[in-house]
């Protein structure tokens, strides 16, 4: 039985093992590779996607759980908040190896969608699930504050 959902605005249908994690369905079956595999255990956030606007760990979300929902990956980001976040990421040169950054950006966009003026503590709380082994955390914080300013302007 094919599972139907919306991926980056496009109606999508996949006939695979319903237990296949959303991450691998999107990467291996659909071929969008911006979302990364870091732990497979909801520990690192590298695989973060938005499902109906909420950030989820796609490595630990079975495909069956997103039937009928709207999935957005880094490739499908758009709009004022996303642009502000991505521009700030470039301006602050947040990325080092870059591998965690799709997930970081997805979490940051979700945060700013809810909260246009997050404090350091609120940033820490929202971003705690996203590991960066390059420890770009100082710049992630700065970029989020900067993006928030752009969003408010």
């Amino acid at each position: 039985m094919a599972i139907k959902f919306t991926l980056n605005g496009k109606p999508t249908s996949l006939d695979v093992d319903p237990d296949m994690p959303l991450l691998w369905a999107v990467r291996d079956e659909i071929g969008l590779t911006g979302s990364k595999f870091g732990c497979g255990a909801a520990q690192c956030g590298a695989c973060t996607m938005h499902v109906d606007g909420e950030p989820v760990r796609s490595c630990s979300t079975p495909l069956s759980a997103i039937e009928g929902q709207k999935v957005t990956t880094i490739e499908g980001l758009g709009g004022k908040v996303a642009k502000a976040v991505q521009d700030a990421w470039i301006k602050h040169e947040v990325a080092q190896c870059g591998y965690c950054q799709s997930g970081q950006i997805m979490s940051a966009v979700a945060l700013l969608n809810d909260n246009k003026k997050p404090s350091d503590a609120e940033i820490d709380e929202a971003m705690q699930g996203n590991i960066c082994r390059c420890a770009t955390y100082v710049r992630i914080r700065a970029a989020i504050h900067d993006a928030a300013k752009t969003v408010r302007a």
């Binding site: 590779t33 911006g34 979302s35 990364k36 595999f37 990956t73 880094i74 490739e75 980001l77 991505q86 990421w89 470039i90 040169e93 947040v94 990325a95 870059g98 591998y99 950054q101 799709s102 950006i105």
Partner: peptide, 14 residues
Amino acid sequence: DARAKSNGTAQYTI
């Protein structure tokens, strides 16, 4: 590499 690493297009082995 700042842009490619901020929009998911940077290519890694995986």
